[in-house]
């Protein structure tokens, strides 16, 4: 259980505003932080990790106080049991994969844990390589394994999958869910990908300008504001072409390109590159067996 209440002045798009959040996060849950860049998502993670100090508030993890401004408690990051996967992975180039993991180990740590992690995240063949020679997905796996060496209570991932291609994402989502269950973690991750959020997280927190916009079941939040349609997907607009009174919009959903014909007024604030929801009545699609 994470209980937190935080206040800090931050710069949002060059405008100073206060981050103010009060949250209770269930033990064992995966929670996604969703919001525009500069909304305060990374700052929130850094405050939980102790890499940034709030002005006021408190952070209690499983009953233990990590931060309390009224009692003058502020544990340094070294004393907080968190695993942090940075956006740039932050693997140390001077160490091999295995040395990166060994570096994370306490003096009392057992080498079994590292062997187990190397197995789960399938790093066996790579363990003697330097991070500079690994692909993005491989680096990501090493960063995930390294974050888990110290048996953290909270695992935090800052846009862990944004730089990876579709197949790699699918695989890493599986790894994250797997270690989350295996090690009984409470996981917080930042993501912009709606399908990723729906697939991975139990709860989601939408923040904007440091304030909570919504917090709750991620499926509910996405479907609540949407439509009674049961046939719906999120995707990225690839192109828009005019055709008589209609526009043919090509949308990438997962690995598939689909085309949707809509009237011009539907496209008023939509342009190529936007994430959109594609919905239809469940009565329209047909199904045919292909395998």
């Amino acid at each position: 259980m994470i209980e937190l209440s935080l206040q800090k002045k931050l710069l949002f798009d060059t405008v100073e505003a206060a981050l103010e959040l009060v949250l209770d996060i269930d033990h064992g849950s995966i929670t996604t932080l969703y919001g525009k860049s500069g909304a305060g998502k990374t700052s929130l993670l850094k405050m939980i990790a102790g890499l940034m100090t709030p002005e006021k508030g408190n952070i209690t993890i499983n009953g233990k106080i990590w931060y309390d401004s009224t009692k003058g408690i502020n544990l340094p990051p070294q004393k907080r049991e968190v695993g942090f996967v940075f956006q740039d992975y932050a693997l140390f180039p001077n160490m091999t994969v295995k040395e990166n993991l060994l570096f994370a180990q306490d003096k009392t740590g057992d080498s079994k844990r590292i062997r187990q992690l190397i197995d789960i995240i399938e790093l066996g063949d790579l363990q003697h390589r330097r991070p500079g020679l690994l692909s993005g997905g491989q680096q990501q796996r090493v960063a995930l394994a390294r974050a888990l060496v110290r048996k953290p209570q909270v695992l935090m991932l800052d846009e862990p999958l944004s730089a990876l291609d579709y197949d790699m994402r699918q695989k890493l989502q599986q790894y994250i869910i797997q270690v989350h269950r295996e090690y009984d973690l409470t996981t917080l991750l930042i993501s912009h990908d709606i399908s990723e959020i729906l697939k991975m997280s139990d709860k989601m927190l939408i923040i904007d300008n440091g304030k909570q916009i919504a917090y709750g079941d991620s499926k509910e939040i996405f479907t609540r504001k949407n439509i009674s349609a049961k046939f719906q997907f999120s995707g990225e607009v690839m192109s828009i072409e005019k055709q008589d009174f209609l526009y043919i919009v090509t949308i990438l959903i997962g690995r598939d390109l689909v085309k949707v014909a809509v009237e011009g007024s539907d496209l008023e604030n939509i342009s190529v590159g936007d994430q959109v929801l594609v919905a239809s009545k469940a009565f329209n699609p047909i199904i045919r067996k292909i395998r």
Binding site: R224, K225, N226, I227, S228, K281, N284
Partner: peptide, 8 residues
């Protein structure tokens, strides 16, 4: 009726 969606 099967072509109409409801939204809140």
């Amino acid at each position: 009726t099967s072509d109409i969606m409801l939204s809140v």
